[in-house]
């Protein structure tokens, strides 16, 4: 019987030491890393036959639009649902992302990403004490840019590869910065443009980008992250000058 070999980095909880276990699962044509993890969960035995606990992982949409199953597959961060076994070298090495606290095994807590979205006010306030009516129209050109930016699924690939993003640094990272560009592009969101720019002009904001530009190389949704950052560099610079000369 043809089998597939996996090497998985496991960890019981955040404060216990990680360890490696190898697994062997039956091969099926077209299988991906997630289907193999399901097979391991059905029969949690290591490759040398020892009983072990099932490997924990996160997954949701299984079509690379939710970002939940992001992990490091053979040394490169990506979504495991779209990681086809046929295209991977064996043993397939699975590790949790390193920039977020491990919950268990391959499951990490990406709360920091959602905190970053809150910090940069990545939403459009539309509530009023009366009906505000329709907002201004969005030009087709801006729709085009906005669509590309709206594909972000908060998966964390851009942060995993960012040399400026880690537990010592307060950097919000490329994903949240790009959302500032998205919401400032929207004609209604534009009304809070300066407020949003302010959120990224302090410590951990846009100035903490080191221009290594790894983010744009690994983004599974091909979001022009470095263009977003450079665009925000222009906007924050112009805003800072305006603020200085008008103060």
């Amino acid at each position: 019987m043809k089998t597939v070999r996996f090497k998985i980095k496991r960890q019981q909880s955040l404060d216990t030491a990680p360890y490696w276990e190898e697994f062997e699962v039956p091969y099926r044509p077209g299988m991906n890393v997630i289907t193999a993890l399901y097979d391991i969960a059905k029969n949690p035995k290591t490759a040398d036959g020892k009983a072990t606990s099932a490997v924990a992982w996160d997954a949701n949409c299984l079509e690379e639009v939710c970002g939940a199953c992001t992990m490091i597959v053979n040394g490169k961060v990506r979504q495991s649902c779209s990681a086809l076994v046929d295209a991977l070298q064996q043993p397939i090495c699975l590790e949790p992302m390193t920039k977020f606290p491990v919950v268990r095994d391959l499951r990490v807590n990406r709360k920091r990403m959602f905190d970053a979205l809150k910090r940069v006010k990545a939403w459009i306030p539309i509530d009023g004490t009366y009906d505000l009516g329709e907002g201004p129209k969005l030009s087709p050109q801006d729709q085009h840019i906005g669509y590309a930016l709206s594909k972000c699924m908060t998966c964390g690939c851009c942060l995993e590869v960012c040399p400026q993003y880690h537990d010592r640094s307060p950097f919000v990272g490329a994903a949240a910065l790009s959302q500032v560009r998205l919401f400032n592009l929207h004609p209604t969101g534009k009304m809070q443009e300066e407020e949003r720019l302010e959120t990224i002009m302090g410590e951990g904001g846009i100035e903490d980008c080191g221009n290594a530009q790894n983010c744009v190389r690994v983004c599974p949704k091909d979001i022009p992250l470095t263009t977003s950052i450079a665009d925000l560099n222009r906007k924050t610079t112009a805003y800072a000058l305006k603020k200085f000369f008008r103060s």
Binding site: N211, P224, T226, T227, A230, L232, N233, R234, A238
Partner: peptide, 10 residues
């Protein structure tokens, strides 16, 4: 040039 928003696109 990137940092001051002069060169923006790839």
């Amino acid at each position: 040039l990137v940092h001051w928003g002069i060169t923006v696109g790839p």
